[in-house]
C-alpha cells in the first residue's frame, strides 16, 4: 500500500484553488482553502467522471466544470443535484513545503 505520497509543493496551489495530482493510475484533486489549509479528494466527479481540478473553488466548495455538481471538498459531501454521491477525501499534511496525502 502506498500510504503517504508527495502530491505537490505547497506553493503549487493558489489560495482558494485546486490542482490535479495523478499517482499510479489514480487521480486526485488537491485544494488550498481561503484560510490556507490543504485538502485532498478523489479527482473525478461522482456524477460523470469529470476532472474536478478544472472546476471552480469558492470558499469550501468545489464545483464540477461540466455540470455544476457541488461538493464540500473538506468533507466530500455532495451538495445536491446533479451529484448525489459523496466525494472520497484523503488526509493531508504539509511538511517542509510539500503537500503530502495519505492515499491508503
Amino acid at each position: 500500500m502506498a500510504g503517504w505520497v508527495d502530491a505537490c509543493g505547497a506553493d503549487d496551489v493558489d489560495e482558494e484553488d485546486v490542482i490535479r495530482f495523478d499517482h499510479e493510475g489514480r487521480t486526485f484533486a488537491i485544494y488550498r482553502s481561503p484560510d490556507d489549509d490543504y485538502f485532498a479528494t478523489d479527482g473525478l466527479c461522482t456524477h460523470e467522471k469529470i476532472h474536478l481540478a478544472d472546476g471552480l473553488v469558492m470558499d469550501d466548495i468545489i464545483e464540477c466544470p461540466k455540470h455544476n455538481g457541488r461538493f464540500n471538498y473538506k468533507t466530500g459531501q455532495a451538495k445536491g443535484a446533479p451529484v448525489c454521491v459523496n466525494l472520497k477525501t484523503y488526509p493531508v499534511k504539509v511538511e517542509a513545503g510539500r503537500v503530502m496525502i495519505d492515499i491508503g
Binding site: I50, H51, D54, G55, L56, E63, P65, K66, N68
Partner: peptide, 8 residues
Amino acid sequence: NAIARDIR
C-alpha cells in the same frame, strides 16, 4: 474543460 472555470 480548459475554459470551464473562466466561463463559470
